[in-house]
């Protein structure tokens, strides 16, 4: 039996003051359990609460009620500086909004977590080279973000999330702005990360193709989990299974 890495119980989130007209109920009682080595995608229509959910699970936003446990630590009871340390040592992030610093080269960006943790230069060098080779970006290590493609930037962000051997990596729309070829490359990185390093990954996406790389897809709508799909068979089969589920749940197609 594998151990539980993340467990969330009865998560609710209300933006604004409850009772007021402007208040939004973004999450409405979500329970989630992620096992070590899991690779989970969260899907759902726009505004369904996907981003809100990862924000809460990763301790970025405070939930209105419910509990989140990562490893065996309850994150809402941590002080800000404990949380900072916890993030540095145990969590990985791939967020579109906070990708790379323009002032640093790709390699410098990648080693940033170790720099913040005051690791030795040798350790950084070894680790960075290893991860960059793994994701095929070693040759662009000396370049600046604006000198490389969007896909390479995103792979660098994925590499960075791996630098401190996190217990879990959170990603919000990691293929959001990418063309299909780049997004294929990025998703392969996540897959490699998951298979070779046994890293646990929780990812938000609205892209069925990206979701088909995962082992499990959780569908949410109006702040609730409506369906869960486990991978069986090939990726192609999983892909069409996800499409079917989406049709049942009412996904992107009934938008607009």
């Amino acid at each position: 039996m594998s151990e539980t890495v993340l467990e969330a119980k009865h998560i609710t989130k209300v933006y604004g003051n409850a009772g007021e007209e402007s208040a939004t109920k973004a999450l409405n009682g979500v329970d989630i359990k992620v096992e070590a080595g899991d690779f989970v995608a969260i899907m759902g229509p726009s505004g369904s609460g996907k981003s809100t959910l990862v924000d809460i699970l990763s301790g970025i936003t405070k939930q209105t009620s419910g509990t989140v446990t990562i490893g065996n630590r309850q994150i809402e009871s941590m002080s800000p500086s404990e949380m900072a340390l916890f993030r540095r040592r145990s969590l990985g992030f791939v967020f579109q909004e906070f990708n790379l610093l323009d002032s640093l080269t790709i390699k410098e960006n990648i080693v940033l977590p170790m720099v913040l943790d005051k690791k030795s230069s040798d350790a950084m060098e070894t680790k960075a080279n290893e991860v960059m080779s793994l994701f095929g970006i070693r040759e662009v290590g000396h370049k600046y973000p604006y000198e490389v493609s969007g896909g390479q930037q995103q792979r660098a962000a994925v590499s960075r999330a791996l630098m401190n051997d996190p217990v879990i990596v959170f990603a919000d729309e990691p293929t959001g702005n990418l063309d299909s070829k780049s997004s294929n490359a990025v998703m392969n990185c996540f897959k490699t990360m998951n298979e070779e390093k046994n890293t646990t990954i929780l990812m938000v996406t609205h892209d069925v193709f990206a979701a088909s790389f995962c082992k499990k897809v959780i569908f949410i709508k109006d702040g609730r989990i409506t369906l869960t799909a486990d991978k069986k068979g090939t990726r192609k089969e999983f892909f069409s299974h996800i499409l079917d589920c989406q049709a049942v749940v009412g996904g992107e197609s009934d938008e607009i």
């Binding site: 500086s81 900072a84 340390l85 993030r87 992030f93 967020f95 906070f98 913040l116 960075r160």
Partner: peptide, 15 residues
């Protein structure tokens, strides 16, 4: 904001 956001997600603390 982006710079600070990156630092903070990577675990830099406020002080």
């Amino acid at each position: 904001n982006k710079e600070f956001g990156i630092y903070m997600t990577l675990g830099m603390n406020q002080s």
